[in-house]
Amino acid sequence: MTGRNAFDFDTSEIRSLSRHLARVVPQARRDTRAVMMRGALNIKRDWAKNARASAPKHAPAYPRAIGFDLLAFGPDQLLATIGPDKRMPQGALGNLLEYGSVKNGPHNDGGRALATEIPAFEAQMALIQQRGLTWW
Rank of each mutant, 00 (worst) to 15 (best):
N5P: 02
W47D: 07
T32I: 10
I66C: 01
L70V: 05
P63W: 00
L17T: 08
L114M: 06
L70W: 03
R29H: 12
V24W: 06
G91M: 05
A120F: 13
R23Q: 15
T116N: 13
D76Y: 07
T134D: 09
D46P: 02
W136A: 14
I128D: 08
S18C: 12
L17E: 05
L79Q: 14
Q124N: 06
M36A: 15
V35A: 13
A55N: 01
E13V: 13
R87K: 08
K57H: 00
I118W: 04
L97G: 10
R30Y: 11
K103A: 15
G100R: 05
R52S: 05
L41K: 12
D76N: 08
S16I: 12
I66H: 02
L17W: 10
V35P: 09
T134W: 07
E13H: 14
I82N: 09
G74I: 07
K86L: 13
P26V: 07
S54F: 00
S12C: 10
R64I: 00
P60H: 01
S18W: 14
A113L: 02
A40N: 09
M125H: 04
L71C: 02
P84Y: 05
L114N: 02
A61E: 03
F68Y: 03
W135T: 02
E98R: 01
M88L: 12
E98W: 07
A123T: 11
L21C: 08
A80D: 06
P75H: 02
N5C: 01
P119L: 03
N42A: 12
L17D: 03
E13M: 14
G105Y: 07
W135L: 03
L41A: 13
L78I: 06
T11L: 13
E122M: 04
G83H: 07
L97C: 12
W47C: 05
G100C: 08
A72V: 09
N42V: 10
R33Q: 09
A80M: 10
E117S: 07
M125D: 07
N108Q: 00
M88Y: 11
R38G: 14
F68I: 01
A120D: 08
A28C: 08
D69R: 06
A92Y: 15
T81V: 15
A113W: 04
A6G: 12
A115W: 03
G91Y: 09
G67H: 01
D10A: 07
D31R: 06
W136M: 14
L71F: 09
G100L: 07
L114I: 12
I43A: 02
D109P: 04
P60Q: 00
S54Q: 01
N42I: 10
F9N: 06
L93S: 09
V102A: 15
F9Q: 10
G110Q: 03
R45Q: 13
A53D: 03
R30E: 15
P75V: 04
F73M: 04
A22S: 14
F7P: 09
R131E: 08
I128P: 04
A115K: 07
T116V: 11
G105N: 05
D69C: 01
Q90T: 09
S12N: 11
Y62P: 01
W135V: 03
M36H: 14
A53M: 03
Q124E: 07
D8T: 15
R23S: 13
L21Q: 09
A22Q: 12
R131N: 13
